[in-house]
């Protein structure tokens, strides 16, 4: 059976869910797998919720829109509530435990809460809570080789801001250790 991971990353606009999704997609590309990344692009993006669907697969990908994720990163309450509902049985749902209170009834998904924003803030990397959560997601699912994740970060950080590469890599480590 072909291996496939379907992810939804969701939060408020500005929290970096689209960027974290792009890192997953690039990791898949580097390992020569089929990947797709599809953002929500409605008017709700300004200040409202933003999310993206990412699929990494051994087979060509049909719809890039993920409707039953087996992996979720949720960075706010509405995103958690919506996508924990849609998650497949056995899914891994990673969320910021300071921003999300799980009030759902799902018992067939693995819920992993870490205070990602606080962890990032304490390390003076305010905007990298998304990558801290991504590190935790990697720890739980091992969706690529560890080295691939760093290589993917290098691909996604703009070449004009090389100093951000090292910070992102540290954020990954903090997520794994959290």
């Amino acid at each position: 059976m072909a291996q496939q991971m379907q992810a939804v990353l969701a939060g408020f606009g500005g929290q970096g869910t689209l960027f974290a999704g792009k890192v997953i997609a690039y990791a898949g590309l580097i390992e020569d797998r089929h990947v797709s990344w599809f953002p929500s692009y409605g008017p709700e993006m300004r200040g409202g919720t933003a999310n993206c669907s990412v699929t990494v697969s051994d087979e060509p990908i049909g719809s890039p829109l993920v409707t039953e994720p087996d992996v979720v990163i949720a960075m706010n309450q509405p995103s958690y509530d919506k996508f924990v509902e849609e998650a497949r049985a056995g899914a891994v749902v990673v969320f910021d435990s300071d921003l999300v209170t799980p009030e759902d009834v799902r018992t067939d998904v693995e819920k992993v809460g870490i205070p990602a924003a606080r962890i990032a803030q304490e390390a003076k990397m305010d905007k990298l809570a998304n990558i801290v959560l991504l590190g935790k997601l990697w720890d739980k699912t091992r969706f690529c080789e560890r080295a691939t994740l760093d290589a993917a970060i290098c691909k996604c950080v703009p070449s004009t801001k090389p100093q951000l590469i090292e910070m992102n890599e540290r954020a990954i480590e903090m997520g794994i250790d959290a």
Partner: peptide
Amino acid sequence: DGMLGQMMEP
């Protein structure tokens, strides 16, 4: 269409 325009693929 909007799906093909907005999505990223290799």
